[in-house]
Design a protein around this nucleic acid. Sequence first.
DNA 1: TAATCAACTTGTTATTTGCAAGTTAATTTG
DNA 2: CAAATTAACTTGCAAATAACAAGTTGATTA
Lengths: 136, 136
Amino acid sequence: MKALKIRSGCPISSALDIIGDKWSLLIVRDIVMNGKNTYNEFLKSREKIATNVLADRLSLLEATGILAREEHPESKAKIFYRLTDKGIDLLPVLVELILWANVHLPIDEEAKPFGDRLRKNKEAIVQQFMAALKKK
Amino acid sequence: MKALKIRSGCPISSALDIIGDKWSLLIVRDIVMNGKNTYNEFLKSREKIATNVLADRLSLLEATGILAREEHPESKAKIFYRLTDKGIDLLPVLVELILWANVHLPIDEEAKPFGDRLRKNKEAIVQQFMAALKKK
DNA sequence: TAATCAACTTGTTATTTGCAAGTTAATTTG
DNA sequence: CAAATTAACTTGCAAATAACAAGTTGATTA
């Protein structure tokens, strides 16, 4: 696993030291928005993360307290990856990325209605997702 | 310059295709929070970006419409990098990263009061920064 | 019991980063 | 006004990271 290097005490810089890459927040997205929780489910996402990169990011996200590995309720062969409170608190970052992309990037048509709903009702939707994640 | 690869039509994935790295948002931060606007000012930040990486990111941010290169009001030798509206709209993302880091990461003591203010008065502060950036 | 599945690891190649040094045009200094 | 300095890069090279293909190990299913 690659080591975590902290470049400065700046909050933005420190946040990017952990989640500033192309894959970490996609794993968080898959848990929050797509109900995924296992290695193989993450692998199947359309962005096609490489197996070694996925393993590396999962261990980094675990090491930084964003994810926790738990035993899967249905099978001893599977590992259930769950977001910690620290991980759940990344949801507002995801939301702002979605809102920005909805306005400024070409994205899937199917994704737009959710962005529009978010725009009009951000707080409530964020609270609802957070509650759903913390509950279980 | 490295090419921009879009992995999917997912808003989060597409946003990360552009700003999902350790440096791009630090350049945006330097403009928004630290009043920097030139190559050499960006170079002097404490995270110590390499010169070739800075040049690469500046051209990528320009190519994706986040930054615009303008002539510097004080000198023909300098280039004035300004955020476009698309770049200014990244401010809420920065804000959520700051809020997350303030709660969950060890950061500079000096940075904490601003995070606390943000927490209590996010909307107003964001609007104020945006207005200041759009004005000039 | 054999094949399959889930979660990785390993090896190899391609890409990106970090670091040092060099380039060119504009500006300042002696 | 020639010489040094500044600003914005570019280039070359070694080191780190990512992508791709294949292999390993411990469940689970047929």
